[in-house]
Nucleic acid binder design. Structure first.
Lengths: 369, 369
DNA sequence: AATAACAATGCAATCGATTGCGCTTTGCAG
DNA sequence: CTGCAAAGCGCAATCGATTGCATTGTTATT
């Protein structure tokens, strides 16, 4: 183990076959102007000697690294890890590698790590913004140097960008209307940083649904969180449930806080969904696990990752059919479970209902280790 | 956007400063034989022109890519994504990039993707084996070429390897003894593929605990799963609970199947932990979410990732203090929750107990999006 | 048979950074 | 004033693969 014998190069093959390195290179790349015999001989020897192309050298010469960079907040979050899984798969299928980097939701770290990605001369960058980030100038390093940047999920509030996203407004609208249909009349909202458009849009969709249904918009039950973490969720829910006129429904901007709401409510003996109907966002695996199962918005993480790669590839191929920028919107849908199902139509015994989109998610992301 | 002006190189800087590229290179790398003034001037101009080193060129010349390759089964599993998060962080801190690849638990895909990683001339490889994999010859490509391979979690059953792991035997032993202490006398086991040593060891630890406590080892309640998926868990649990003499406790080789056991048992009205005590493995986030909360073995995913990087760095630095191979074993511990706590000492109201190792996990991996 | 056309291969530059070796200058001791 | 070392910097090769252009050998055309 650990021998440091040098790897085989095309020069080694060339020497042995008494041809030039150019010929070897072309033979391996199936260039038209190389004879059949030669190609066969080269490939045979390459295999025998265990030749493997040096991607680094190739990248330097061709100026194409065939590598995508990913910048996300935290790798170990259900939505993000599925997103990455989708990116990895689509990238691999198109012959690209994937370098990964996390910002820990801190803008400064995002900036630092972007430098590293740039130094790696990635072919394209796929980003989901750090929660903190409000200034986007650090992405110009890429755009100004001709490296496509595709934003996924959390994207900047500026116009000239490529992005893959969902319609957060309408998803939130549907979620809220669902609660209203279930009889809720005083619906609270758990929202994230408003400078992140996805959270602002979810908030707007929620408010629009209330207004459309002639329900009061009470800002005292619109909760503002920073990171939408479990701890925040627990702490803020306690406050919310302590007020004189507590809500009878709540729409949370993510599942993590929704779970905290359920746990807090349960500990107080508040019946879900009868006294408090809850719906989250993302359709994380925990939705099916918690008792009662949590209604949510299905957020197509893997598909979003794949779409981002597809979009990056199109840009690299010079596809300008969508104009200077492109925006892909993926579909979401409400997944109704017991936490919001006051009419009792969706209940089951063991909680295993063959809901189509969910089994689909499971197929591509089994919760095994 | 999308201008294709070429990036600044050291030659551009050299020309403008009327010095040689060598000087620029050395100045930027803080080489001793370059004058103070020169260094200052070079760095100033580099900054002004937005110079960024081309890692690809540097890698080619120095034969060091400063890139770690990761090969895992699925990125989007709680344990794996935390593992990767740890790897990414430790790698970044040591100035290394991270390329990621997934095998989907299929050996063939593992082999194919390893080729790609090799072609990228990664500095070191960190692997958690595909469930299927029993032959390890495809890793020789790396070892024979002097590229360190560090196995994490799922490792080969051969000796001359570097690895980071836990003591699966003793963890399983402790888990099983815990069930026995709680009064269980007929304990079942849900195991994974036995050719994967981690699952074989968990099984052995379980059996050893039974024997030590003079309990019968009944193979009819040792369940063999392939992927340890939720579906498998549900299907096999149904069979298990249908037998004449059902178990009063079960130790599962992962949390996913343990959750299935709980859900299946609940749907049949079996009381947990009174009639069936359950303990899983990994301490995934779902453990705290499910009702009743699931006891488990804390599996230090992030720390394992960091340890693997540390180990790889040591090998690259030529550290032979551990001999030709090195093995790092990290600690685990039983996390007792309601699913196995028949004595009722660990209960709480809202399920938020400030268990130290858990809050630690949360700090580094908040369940937010 | 002479020439055009083409197929197959080689030559050498190139991508951007690094580095061993050698050259020039300055400083200082003898 | 000479000699010599150290400081500061440049030359040119190098890493491995790619590619425009030149070259050789072969076949087809008139």
């Amino acid at each position: 183990m650990g021998n440091k014998k040098k790897a085989v190069t095309i020069h080694d093959l060339a020497q042995e076959l008494k041809v030039s390195p150019s010929t070897v290179s072309r033979a391996l790349n199936d260039h038209a102007s190389i004879g059949k015999q030669t190609k066969k001989a080269v490939r045979k020897l390459a295999k025998e000697r265990g030749y493997r192309p040096n991607t680094i050298a190739s990248s330097l010469r061709t100026n194409r690294s065939n590598t995508f960079g990913i910048m996300v907040s935290w790798i170990n979050r259900p939505f993000i890890s599925s997103l990455i899984s989708g990116i990895e798969e689509a990238a691999r299928e198109s012959g690209n590698r994937v370098i990964i980097s996390q910002s820990h939701d801190i803008t400064e770290l995002e900036m630092e790590n972007l430098q590293v990605l740039y130094d790696s001369r990635i072919s394209a960058l796929i980003v989901s913004l750090a929660m903190e980030t409000t200034d986007y100038s650090h992405f110009e390093l890429f755009t100004k140097n001709g490296i496509p940047v595709v934003f996924v999920d959390r994207f900047p509030t500026i116009h000239n960008i490529h992005k893959v996203h969902i319609n957060n407004f309408s998803a939130a609208f549907e979620a809220t209307e669902h609660l209203i249909q279930q009889g809720c009349r005083r619906i609270a909202h758990f929202g994230g940083e408003r400078h992140q458009s996805i959270y602002e849009d979810r908030r707007s969709g929620y408010i629009a649904a209330l207004k459309k249904n002639n329900l009061e918009v009470d800002k005292s039950i619109i909760i503002q969180a920073n990171l939408l973490s479990a701890e925040e969720g627990m702490r803020l829910t306690k406050q919310l449930l302590d007020i004189d006129n507590p809500p009878d429904g709540i729409f949370c901007a993510n599942d993590t806080t929704a779970v905290s709401v359920i746990r807090c409510a349960k500990s107080r003996g508040i019946k879900i969904p009868e006294e408090l109907a809850v719906i989250g966002f993302n359709n994380d695996p925990i939705c099916e696990i918690i008792d009662p199962p949590l209604s949510s918005i299905h957020h197509p993480a893997i598909e979003m990752g794949m779409a981002a790669v597809k979009q990056a590839l199109a840009i690299l191929a010079g596809d300008t059919s969508t104009g200077p920028v492109s925006s892909v919107t993926l579909d979401t849908h409400v997944v109704i479970r017991a936490s919001s199902d006051r009419l009792g139509t969706e209940r089951s015994e063991d909680g295993f209902r063959g809901v189509l989109p969910e089994s689909k998610v499971k197929d591509s992301a089994p919760q095994t280790k």
